[in-house]
């Protein structure tokens, strides 16, 4: 009896807290959504119009700009490739750093972290000159490389954290069974750490999807990304609030889809976690 009421209470508290946090999280996005669905004169009206007939005009305006759609497509390609590349390159490095002792390891992993510390504004000119000299300005490849570099330290460090959580006995058993190092890594370690890979994959994708400064500097007309295209709704004389917020909502959709898609494996990762013991 006591136990049950305790459980109910716990449940209730959990829900109350989650809902409070939900309001905090959702309100700005809700507000952006409602701005994007209003007529121009109502967007900034205070007291606000809570009930209004939604109009899709702002969305049409966004889609009429071919530039935004192209930016959207570019960003998707860049996001997927940059995420994949930083995972392919970064996860093995993280594993090596978490499992093997060698001279200079601590300094090495700390150095990996420092590559993220430079303020982006001061590296813009060197990177611009560099990508120009290898002829990659205004290409998706340049931005993919940049975003991979930006994402790598995160992938390496977060994955290293996950590998440290996994007991070393796992791959030892595999090695005893005759697996090679690579075999043990791919067959035993990767499946066990899938949750972490998914989490860090989401983070890398989101970082790439939203990255603005280097995308601005390295691209021009052809390889322009979605965040740069969004900025273009701010113009002289007015901020086009309607299209700006509409673009802000549209740009969220792939993130939602991506998170929902990979979220499945997050759940699967959970079951692996339960099984592995």
């Amino acid at each position: 009896m006591y136990e049950r009421s305790c459980k109910t209470w716990k449940h209730l508290i959990r829900w109350v807290l989650l809902l409070v946090f939900l309001v905090w999280t959702v309100f700005p996005i809700f507000w952006m959504l409602s701005m994007s669905l209003k007529e121009k004169t109502d967007i900034l009206a205070i007291p606000p119009k809570w009930f209004f007939l939604p109009v899709l005009r702002n969305y049409l305006e966004v889609f009429q700009r071919g530039e935004f759609l192209r930016g959207f497509f570019n960003s998707a390609v860049i996001g997927v490739f940059a995420t994949a590349l930083s995972l392919i390159v970064g996860v093995p490095a993280a594993y090596a750093l978490s499992r093997f002792k060698f001279r200079g390891r601590n300094n090495l992993q700390f150095w990996v972290l420092t590559t993220r510390m430079m303020p982006p504004v001061v590296v813009l000119i060197p990177y611009f000159l560099f990508f120009r000299s290898i002829g990659l300005l205004d290409t998706k490849l340049a931005v993919i490389m940049m975003h991979t570099i930006i994402g790598l330290p995160l992938v390496i460090w977060v994955m290293r954290g996950f590998f440290l959580e996994i007991p070393g006995a796992l791959e030892e058993a595999a090695l005893v069974d005759g697996c090679t190092y690579w075999g043990a890594f791919i067959r035993v370690i990767l499946p066990t750490s899938l949750t972490g890979i998914v989490a860090v994959g989401i983070l890398s994708f989101i970082f790439s999807w939203n990255e603005f400064l280097s995308a601005l500097v390295l691209t021009g007309y052809r390889a322009k990304t979605a965040p740069v295209a969004v900025y273009n709704f701010i113009s002289f004389q007015n901020i086009a609030w309607g299209p700006l917020t509409a673009a802000g909502i549209i740009i969220l959709i792939p993130v939602i889809v991506f998170v929902i898609l990979v979220h499945r494996s997050l759940v699967r990762g959970l079951t692996f976690g339960a099984v592995k013991g």
Binding site: T25, I29, I206, P227, V255
Partner: peptide, 21 residues
Amino acid sequence: NIFRVIYILPMGATPIAIAFV
């Protein structure tokens, strides 16, 4: 699952747009 997805959204919102909002 719904919470897990929704709670990630603020990070996914483009900083430029969300800063203006």
